[in-house]
């Protein structure tokens, strides 16, 4: 839809408070990260002095042994969990949205139940089991419970997306002689790609966000960033490590912003080129 210049500018004006609402806390964390310890509690939004001491503390200083491996672990664990979940969920959600077979309601109900079961209560028995079979504090030991967060979420979100797909195109392909599988691969997959990408984003961030599993099922080798952050906070009871936490937060935000940039291009392209308009 073509917007008039007036609409264009008023929309641009409206976007400013929206962006400010998002950016004010973000810049605040950056501000805290670059404030030297001496002015950490000066109640000023903008830093009067810049210092890299907080970043040095976590990347090369005393907290680096905790932070650097945690960053690597977070990326590895979340990527593996995301890929597994989205691939499996794509097939599952297609079947649920499209095919007639007994038990699909059950799958959705179970997904929902699994997806929203309080994480804390999954942790206690898993802790016990993982220690017994040697999965405690390993990458698979985190990926597996993460699937309980990411897999049902992927199935639900993708099912909703797939419901809105114009299925008559698949039928058209089948009338033209394509098998179910061909119709799925050649017609539905390209139509579904925007939903799949959006789901991949959501799934990744869900895994990235978890800290209950991370803090309960790891000790040193597989510890992820949220768990490491929690460790910073517990370092001293009376002195908040505000700067170190903020610096770590800034660092973990950067790869995510890059990810958002990469994925966003495809999401925008995919979502806006609606399938019906073709």
């Amino acid at each position: 839809m073509d917007a008039t210049p007036k609409q264009k500018w008023s929309l641009a004006a409206v976007s400013i408070p929206v962006m400010l609402w998002t950016l004010v806390p973000l810049f605040w964390i950056f501000s805290l990260a670059v404030k030297p310890q001496s002015i950490q509690a000066d109640n000023k939004y903008f830093p009067r002095e810049f210092s890299w001491e907080n970043f040095q503390l976590i990347t090369t200083g005393t907290a680096s042994d905790l932070f650097n491996p945690a960053l690597v672990n977070s990326i590895v664990v979340c990527l593996i969990a995301t890929v597994i979940s989205v691939v499996l969920a794509t097939f599952c959600a297609y079947a649920i949205a499209r095919l007639n077979f007994p038990g699909k309601k059950l799958i959705l109900l179970v997904s929902l139940a699994v997806s929203f079961f309080p994480v804390i209560s999954l942790v206690t028995p898993l802790f016990d089991l993982w220690r017994n079979i040697g999965l405690f504090d390993t990458i698979p030991g985190l990926v597996i419970p993460y699937l309980s967060l990411t897999l049902p979420l992927s199935i639900w979100v993708l099912s909703a997306f797939f419901q809105q797909i114009p299925w008559e195109m698949e039928q058209a392909a089948q009338v033209d002689g394509a098998t179910s599988w061909q119709a799925f691969r050649r017609v539905i997959v390209p139509l579904a790609a925007p939903g799949v990408f959006t789901t991949a984003l959501i799934t990744f961030f869900t895994a990235w966000n978890d800290f209950v599993f991370a803090i309960s099922l790891t000790s040193e080798n597989a510890r992820t960033v949220p768990a490491a952050l929690a460790f910073f906070t517990g370092a001293s009871q009376f002195e908040q490590p505000t700067g170190a936490i903020s610096a770590a937060a800034v660092i973990v935000t950067i790869p995510v912003v890059i990810l958002v940039l990469i994925f966003q291009k495809r999401i925008v392209a995919g979502l806006t080129s609606g399938a019906v308009k073709g």
């Binding site: 973000l26 984003l201 961030f205 990235w208 995510v256």
Partner: peptide, 9 residues
């Protein structure tokens, strides 16, 4: 961006 930021952060 906020959605991708860890809740703890």
């Amino acid at each position: 961006i906020p959605y991708s930021i860890i809740t703890v952060v």
